[in-house]
Write a protein that binds this DNA or RNA. Structure first.
Length: 418
RNA sequence: CGGGGCGUGGCGCAGUUGGUUAGCGCGCUACUUUUGGGAAGUAGAGGCCGUGAGUUCGAGUCUCACCGCCCCGACCA
């Protein structure tokens, strides 16, 4: 990809309203653009990043047996009446009327839609367990949007729903999803992620867990045990917790962003919507359900909140919009840079975790007629992990200069070895 | 929804007690010279001063209403 053709550019100033690090850098770097309060466009850099995150999530959801589907964002009132949430979900639920004056909702979550699918498609224990997920825009009519992508009204979310014959079978699956989530956060480069006891709120169900990602701008507070791995959301567990309820160890309070919330829904929805299956004994039983959400927009912002310096974002390799930023100091070196570009783009790459091998690296070639200072500033801001500079100086030293965005470490590599 | 702040070229801002031609920085276009940390010169383009109604000889500036954006609170993933 040529930088000169990239839609969306880096800004000279931070947007005046941006306060959190992620909002400042994502907007200044040309990853996102605000349309209105809590509603953003993902520009190519931002969308590439979101796609990388989505791919990581897909891989883990597929691994636990999830099947990807896509449910409508437009939802019907009657299903929300069935579960009783047409009234109780009201502030977060976006409602409107179509041209026939019929009331509809924009999906904030999909228990109603998926439970309806389940009652029509699942009839026997032989078909269970089953899990479906989707990655899609969700709409929530928040009182107030804040902090750039941290709290928005339209956001990208992965939501998975599982159906089981028993609580035991559900629990096994739930544990596997917890592991999958921790793997996702790890692959996205997040540190110190904690599984929290949480409040299931308007989702109902028997119990739920959140994943707390520690960072300065987090709007939530969590207790973290310094001895064992227990942690709890302050809101859910209650104030004044001093000792760990599990091991009695000292507890500290940390700011965090809730990134992912998973729920044991039990038979809450299946009973209300009559989603039954027939068991081995021929008895009709309500499906045992779970749901598992993770906000991709918020995850992207949280990754920035944990990975930056005073010059800009430092993307973990796994989610960076490009693998390499490449440029040259003088116009006369453009051809050599192009040579590097084609070499890297066609290179065969193996990713050890997945065993998948892809052809070529994603390279952003900065071919703009800009001064080298501008290019350096933008390269640092957009945070691509490796920066390659072609210059007379580097060629004299035997190759091109590679700088690691995170460590700042410089090295010279002959072009043949790229 | 309560409290506070703010709307002026694409972005960030200035604009005196109302006064005639609405400025600045960045960006943009053309040419020239530049190139290891946001280069320089010359010449250009680009404005319903958020919207509407008032006050006034005269409104970016004053009044009212509306719309929008941000922050704090309550609420939520």
């Amino acid at each position: 990809m040529l930088y000169s053709q990239l839609f969306g550019k880096t800004l000279w100033d931070y947007p005046k309203d941006a306060e959190t690090i992620s909002h400042k850098y994502l907007a200044k770097g040309g990853f996102i653009d605000q349309l209105m309060s809590g509603v953003y466009t993902y520009l190519p850099l931002g969308w590439r990043t979101a796609a990388k995150i989505s791919d990581i999530i897909r891989e883990e959801m597929n691994r636990v047996g999830g099947q990807e589907i896509s449910m409508p964002a437009l939802q019907k009132k009657s299903q929300w009446i069935e579960t009783g949430r047409w009234g109780t979900m009201d502030p977060p639920l976006f409602k409107f009327k179509d041209r026939h004056n019929k009331e509809l909702a924009l999906g904030p979550t999909h228990e109603e839609v998926v439970t309806d699918l389940a009652r029509r498609f699942i009839s026997s224990y032989k078909e269970l367990p089953i899990a479906v997920y989707q990655i899609q825009n969700k709409f929530r009519n928040e009182m107030r949007a804040t902090g750039g992508l941290l709290r928005v009204r339209e956001f990208i979310m992965k939501d998975m729903y599982s159906f089981h014959i028993s609580k035991e079978d559900f629990s096994d699956f739930y544990e596997r999803v917890i592991k999958a989530y921790l793997t996702i956060f790890d692959k996205c480069g997040l540190k110190g992620v904690k599984l929290l006891e949480a409040d299931s709120g308007s989702m109902g169900g028997d119990y739920s867990n959140e994943f707390g990602v520690p960072c300065k701008n987090g709007e939530d507070k969590m207790y973290v045990c310094e001895v064992c791995d227990w942690a709890g959301n302050v809101q859910a567990v209650g104030a004044n917790v001093v000792k760990c309820p599990r091991c009695g160890g000292e507890v500290v309070v940390k700011s965090n962003v809730e990134n992912g919330h998973i729920f044991m829904l039990g038979t809450e929805y299946s009973e209300k919507m009559k989603a039954y299956f027939t068991n081995e004994k021929g008895e009709r039983k309500p499906l045992i359900m779970g749901c598992y959400g993770i906000g991709i927009s918020r995850l992207m912002a949280t990754i920035v909140e944990q990975n930056y310096d005073d010059k800009g974002i430092i993307w973990p390799n796994s989610v960076s919009p490009f693998d390499y930023y490449l440029t040259y100091v003088e116009d006369s070196l453009k051809d050599i840079a192009s040579e590097c570009y084609y070499k890297l783009s066609k290179l065969k790459r193996d990713t050890p975790e997945s065993g998948v091998s892809r052809i070529g690296f994603d390279v952003l070639l900065d071919d703009r007629d800009a001064s080298i200072g501008t290019k350096f500033a933008d390269a640092d801001l957009i945070g691509i992990p490796k920066r390659i500079i072609v210059s007379k100086k580097s060629l004299d030293q035997g190759g091109v200069e590679i700088k690691d965005r995170r460590t700042g470490k410089l090295s010279i590599l002959p072009i043949e070895e790229l």
